[in-house]
Nucleic acid binder design. Structure first.
Lengths: 101, 101
DNA sequence: CATATATTTCTACATTTCTAGAAATCTCGA
DNA sequence: TCGAGATTTCTAGAAATGTAGAAATATATG
């Protein structure tokens, strides 16, 4: 995983509103939740919610699938695993390599 | 770990510059690195570096200890572990609890 | 004290971000 | 095609953020 990708995902989760959305979707599991379901549970105006969902999608942290009139959102668990791996990968390496990349 | 704390730490790591700093310190291990060492390795102007170090400290992700004229920075590995735990804790819970908190 | 090295503070500016109301668009069923 | 529900787009303003030059401050050493 590249630094930029990791930074994008961390940044996406760094806003409390988006972190709440993401955690709600993680809890919802593989069934996911429609946009409206997120909206009512978290009391977020639609336009604001769309804005944040776009950010989470751009970061590759969630996916959407249309089911009729509703747009179902799901957490991308693989993406989250990659992120966790990235954070822990170099732990205590104690090396003096540069971090230019 | 509270949502706000997690969001603060994720946000702190969400900027590429700060993520590079943090990973450099993680690699440096318990010895840490002085501010100047980070500056020369990552080619970041001093004022910019100080700015970002302040953000990482505020998020509880790094600590500083003065050693003579130099200020040694170290990653707080416990904080990183807490953050990783937070990200993985609710994974695949498949529950329908609210996320109002 | 004077000087060199290390780091921060001050300052400024461009850019991005968050928020949300109102209007527009999309999807389905009758 | 019309209406209702679902979601997005448009728009705008306030606030936060990233960046870094120049000056100031701190620390050690001779």
């Amino acid at each position: 995983m590249q630094l930029q990708t990791a930074a994008n995902r961390l940044d996406a989760l760094g806003a409390p509103t988006r972190l709440r959305i993401f955690r709600l979707l993680v809890r919802a599991g593989t069934d996911g939740l429609p946009v409206g379901g997120i909206q009512s549970r978290l009391s977020i105006p639609g336009s604001t919610l769309t804005h944040h969902l776009r950010g989470l999608i751009a970061a590759g942290l969630i996916e959407q699938e249309r089911q009729g009139a509703m747009l179902v959102c799901r957490a991308d668990f693989r993406a989250m695993d990659e992120l966790v791996d990235y954070l822990t990968a170099e732990c205590c390496a104690e090396q003096q390599k540069d971090d230019a990349a």
